[in-house]
Simulated scan of single mutants.
Amino acid sequence: MTQQHYFYALEIPLEAKEKLRDIKVNLQEKFSFTRWVHHQDLHITLAFLGFAEENQLAIANKKLEQACQFPSFVLEINHLGVFGKTDAPRIFWAGTASQPVLHQVREKVYSTCLESGFKLETRPFKPHITLARKWNDEQPFHPTLLEKENIFKNEKIVFQARNIVLYKTHLGKEPKYEAVAKFPLQDKS
């Protein structure tokens, strides 16, 4: 049996996912990446746990439920970017405008996971929504391609962030992420 991987993420609401799906369809014609992410799998990762025992997940979930005292907040998706080699990026993503509450939420989720015994990545947090993976073209990728495709110039995607979600990964399925626990942020009203 395959070990399940888990991660905590900020949920992207359905309406924003659908707008990103439409943008992604347009971008697929212009950008040659091997794998494009199913629109239902779009999210902002807060802490990747990898394999996790049920009891360890239960401890983290209980702690997170108690610690999740943040208000819901507005996020704006407003630019594109890549991670990896400049000429052959491994990740193509959509990024958000700076939002201090997002960083505070991530820090709380991250520290809660550490307190629960998880070993986490130590790379700095760069909020992003992965759209595609692995550049696959004979021509090298060039950052000016992103400037040409300034899709957010006329229409930014703005949404209310309301939930942190624990996802389980199902390799070989599409969509491949299953929400197994939800932690609502406090409603502002």
Score class of each variant (00 low, 15 high):
119 K>E: 15
46 L>E: 06
71 P>M: 01
186 Q>W: 09
102 L>N: 04
63 K>H: 11
134 K>H: 13
170 H>Q: 14
73 F>A: 11
35 R>W: 09
164 I>D: 08
163 N>E: 10
61 N>C: 11
73 F>N: 06
161 A>F: 02
168 K>I: 02
63 K>Q: 09
114 L>A: 02
123 R>C: 00
68 C>G: 03
175 P>D: 00
29 E>V: 05
72 S>M: 12
143 P>R: 03
137 D>N: 14
39 H>W: 12
72 S>E: 15
78 N>I: 04
105 V>T: 05
67 A>Y: 02
40 Q>A: 06
90 R>P: 03
148 K>C: 02
32 S>P: 04
150 N>E: 13
160 Q>W: 02
114 L>K: 13
179 A>K: 13
144 T>L: 10
108 K>N: 11
130 T>F: 04
141 F>D: 04
145 L>F: 12
156 K>N: 10
55 N>P: 00
24 K>S: 15
43 H>C: 05
178 E>H: 13
176 K>P: 01
51 F>C: 02
41 D>Q: 03
29 E>Y: 07
122 T>L: 02
16 A>G: 01
83 F>E: 08
74 V>D: 10
68 C>S: 13
29 E>R: 12
6 Y>P: 00
127 P>F: 06
91 I>T: 14
43 H>P: 10
108 K>Q: 14
59 I>Q: 10
59 I>H: 08
83 F>I: 11
86 T>W: 11
41 D>R: 04
160 Q>M: 12
3 Q>Y: 10
44 I>Y: 01
122 T>R: 14
182 K>R: 15
179 A>L: 06
158 V>E: 10
110 Y>K: 10
115 E>V: 03
113 C>S: 01
143 P>H: 03
146 L>E: 01
127 P>R: 05
111 S>H: 12
52 A>I: 00
29 E>Q: 13
25 V>L: 14
6 Y>K: 04
126 K>D: 04
12 I>S: 03
156 K>T: 14
119 K>Q: 15
78 N>G: 07
152 F>G: 07
42 L>C: 05
143 P>E: 04
131 L>C: 02
184 P>N: 05
4 Q>S: 14
158 V>G: 10
184 P>Y: 06
155 E>Q: 15
111 S>P: 05
15 E>I: 02
77 I>Q: 00
41 D>K: 07
20 L>S: 05
72 S>F: 09
16 A>P: 07
88 A>Y: 09
3 Q>A: 13
156 K>V: 04
129 I>K: 12
66 Q>D: 13
19 K>S: 09
85 K>P: 04
108 K>D: 06
161 A>C: 09
129 I>Q: 03
47 A>T: 09
8 Y>S: 03
59 I>N: 15
96 T>W: 08
173 K>T: 12
6 Y>N: 06
185 L>Y: 06
142 H>T: 08
61 N>I: 01
86 T>N: 13
80 L>H: 05
25 V>Q: 08
30 K>A: 12
49 L>C: 06
33 F>D: 06
49 L>F: 00
